[in-house]
Design a protein around this nucleic acid. Sequence first.
DNA 1: GAAAGGCAACCTACCAGTAGGTAGGGAGCT
DNA 2: AGCTCCCTACCTACTGGTAGGTTGCCTTTC
Lengths: 187, 187
Amino acid sequence: MVDTRTKILDIAEGLVQRVGLNAMSYKDISEAVGIRKASIHHHFPKKENLVDGLLERCAVSYGDNYQRIVDGSEKAPDKLRKLAAVFADGLNNNKLCLVGSISTDSNTLQDSSCHILQSTIKNTVSIFAAVFEQGRQEQSLTFTGTDEETAFAFFSLLVGSQIVARSHGGMQLFQRAAEGVISGFER
Amino acid sequence: MVDTRTKILDIAEGLVQRVGLNAMSYKDISEAVGIRKASIHHHFPKKENLVDGLLERCAVSYGDNYQRIVDGSEKAPDKLRKLAAVFADGLNNNKLCLVGSISTDSNTLQDSSCHILQSTIKNTVSIFAAVFEQGRQEQSLTFTGTDEETAFAFFSLLVGSQIVARSHGGMQLFQRAAEGVISGFER
DNA sequence: GAAAGGCAACCTACCAGTAGGTAGGGAGCT
DNA sequence: AGCTCCCTACCTACTGGTAGGTTGCCTTTC
């Protein structure tokens, strides 16, 4: 049995991914978790604490998830495909990447949340960059910018395609857009 | 002197681009426009009417703006650079593309707004696709997918980079990401 | 081993503020 | 007269947040 704090974060994460930060309320969370609204405040006194908690947890879990893919034994293009598959999986469940979703609302964030968001993005781009470094060295990928710049572009593409495809185009267009870009790097 | 309806749309558009749809209220708009909250309801009875109005107007204005670039006499890669510059300009003013911003909140939209959003995306991708068609014919661009798929990917990249870069990386990273992808197509 | 204290977790009940929205009135234009 | 536009005044529902109480488990103490 998972503890309540984790349950709250799980529910909140799903809500943010589906409807966005500012459309999610303590009431929604309390109903889904099955406890009273005031009890959420026991675990997360202010909403900003919840957002911080969400971002801190996703910095670790997303980071680990991406790192596991990057640490694999495949060639770089296949690693990019695996990274894209993570986003495809989210899209399949009508969920956006938490970082992408929260980034859209970044102007309504507290400073503390903003800092965590920034370092999470920075970290994610670093992890992605390792794939492009590998691709450069094993000559399986060609690109003009630096590893970091290209990783930033690839991450942004996944975030953006997920958002746009959820509104129009769906899985098929998302997959083809990702594959088009990846095979573009392969030439 | 512009009419009130237009003023409301102007203010609302800026708010959506800066803080997002669900963080924008009729109170915010009324204060910025300089009329009472109830008066907004005279022009837009329900919030969904406002969103529809916003999307309908942007479908035209964005569409015209993109079309003007596409109709130019430049080679395809330079047209892509001009399209990216539109997004860079928004980023410079801390504003996201309206379509990207609203798409993130698409799960909280009414059906009518959803339909307009979808056709706006479809239309935008079609306009972008013309550049890739031109690039293919004049052999200034190389890519593996179809024109539409590649246009979708490029549009998504701009939307995503804008969102991510606003939170972390800023103009510099946005510009380099866009340039990296464009010069990737040029090879 | 039993009583006593402390604390985490949850509850009910409440607060002020704000959300979107409505009713109805008055001014000015055609 | 009728219409557009904007107003004051108000409504209900919900927002994040607080106060204070109850329960039950874990220590500590005798």
